[in-house]
Design a protein around this nucleic acid. Sequence first.
DNA 1: GTCTATAGCCAGATAGAC
DNA 2: GTCTATCTGGCTATAGAC
Lengths: 203, 203
Amino acid sequence: MARLSFREQVLRVREDAIVSSVNRLLADKGFDLMTVDEVAADVGIAKASLYKHFASKEALAAAAMVRLLERLLAILDQQAARADASAFQRLEAVIRWALTQQLAGEMPSVPSQNSSLRAELLANKVYLELLLQVSERLGRWIQQAQADGDIDPALPPEIVLLTVYARGCDPVPVFLKASGNFSDEQITDWVMTVCLRGLRPGR
Amino acid sequence: MARLSFREQVLRVREDAIVSSVNRLLADKGFDLMTVDEVAADVGIAKASLYKHFASKEALAAAAMVRLLERLLAILDQQAARADASAFQRLEAVIRWALTQQLAGEMPSVPSQNSSLRAELLANKVYLELLLQVSERLGRWIQQAQADGDIDPALPPEIVLLTVYARGCDPVPVFLKASGNFSDEQITDWVMTVCLRGLRPGR
DNA sequence: GTCTATAGCCAGATAGAC
DNA sequence: GTCTATCTGGCTATAGAC
């Protein structure tokens, strides 16, 4: 990749700061309740300046989602590098990472219902490409884990994949944290247990 | 209860029709994207007339939530009347009912983040009272199921209760339905399996 | 209690100077 | 590219006639 000029580097840094604010605000309030004014205030620039970087509120959210997927891909790389780990253990680590992000208030939440945002995301080539990559890699681990007998082979991989994704936007851990009765570690462990082994007593 | 006059009966029927529309629209688009204009159009009356029945958009949603809890209480009564059933089987039936509602597009979804609606619900005595009743009755079944060895006794009842509630707003079944690859029955069964027994192979 | 018409407000987006 | 100031549209809520 060509070396970036100083101007371009400054641009990158600024846009990264914007995306970080959007990420936090999306995690905090969700897309509908997040306002562009808040984003501008949080970044510390004028709203009109935001629109020089991103064409719309939807584009802001899309950028945050793209960065989330990039971070997720990095986690997948990291797990793939663990030569000793089984596919199931890698999946476990990915879910655990998602829970950590949620409890840290850094998991952006975008309602799958919002039509304007949904349309923007489905039209976003970069986002779709990353989502496809993530799904394919998770899908391979899921099928491997099923072959290993670590995940029920009777379950369609589609359901397993959706379940993994759903843990990323599950309200349970945040509610438990809000109750103040448990530590983050306890919450993570219990939610992992329920996810993998269900509510029934241990095997 | 005193017999209602004709006028009062008409009022009841109309308000019930309103709440039904709100319920469907909440299930369809969620609170933020639902507009009062849509509700009025769906019911077939003018928007101003709506405001003669309900003071605000939040009050509309609250009424829908109250009716949801009333229907849930009726399900609890029904399950409590099954003399042969274990506590676990009753919980199972309740979760299954929630999934059915969701797949039928009749499970209203209100973001727990929305502050105006949250405030309204927390100020609503009827709603809180019903929510408390439901939680207490589910809580008793949960503890009984743990004593019976049907639910892992190591799990705090709080987590189990939250997990049960969370199945009511889980996006997985709706996504699976949208994929068009599975019947409602298959979806319900698989999601129940994953909820109760987790992703791991059967015991 | 129902309607039409409109007030009031807020948030996304833009104009135009620097 | 950044700013201040403004436009615009849509949505909640209400006024006022019937």
